[in-house]
Simulated assay, not measured.
Amino acid sequence: MTHVVTEACIRCKYTDCVDVCPVDCFREGPNFLTIDPDECIDCAVCIPECPVSAIFAEEDLPKDQVHMTELNAELAKLPNWKSITKRKDPLPDHEEWKDRTGKLSELAR
């Protein structure tokens, strides 16, 4: 099993989670973070750090977010999605997006 970043992260990209990750499994895209399932050790320390509750253990994913497991794995392998290990400021308009749902169409690769 692995942990998965869900659509709640899209257009927010809070990075509190990367500070606590002991294996540096987060990858950063233009407006989303993903977890590399090959690196994640399922420690779960990232889950409570996310201000928008975007991270779940794979077995606890809401049914409408199951598709994010495969998407996290795919994005983590893209060459332009680099490892992120230090916290950064969220995206400038994160406040406008943090409570929205159904943001998959907003994902920038």
Rank of each mutant, 00 (worst) to 15 (best):
L107K: 08
I35P: 04
A57W: 06
L78S: 00
Y14F: 15
K63G: 13
Y14K: 05
A73W: 03
P51K: 09
P92L: 14
A57M: 10
K98R: 15
K63T: 09
S53V: 01
K77L: 14
N80P: 00
D60C: 06
V23R: 11
V45G: 07
T85N: 12
K82G: 04
A54E: 00
L71H: 03
C40R: 03
L75Y: 11
S83P: 05
K77Y: 03
V4C: 00
V45A: 08
E96H: 08
D19V: 09
C21S: 05
P37Q: 05
E96Y: 14
M1F: 00
L61M: 04
D36N: 15
V23C: 05
T85Y: 03
A44I: 08
T101R: 12
G102P: 00
P51N: 12
D24V: 03
E95H: 12
E106A: 13
C21F: 11
K98W: 12
N31D: 04
V52S: 05
L91P: 02
H3G: 00
I41D: 00
H67G: 02
L104R: 09
K86A: 11
C12N: 04
T6D: 00
L71R: 10
L33K: 07
N80F: 12
D24W: 07
F26K: 06
P30L: 07
M1T: 02
D16A: 12
E58G: 02
T6M: 08
K98T: 02
E49D: 08
L91Y: 11
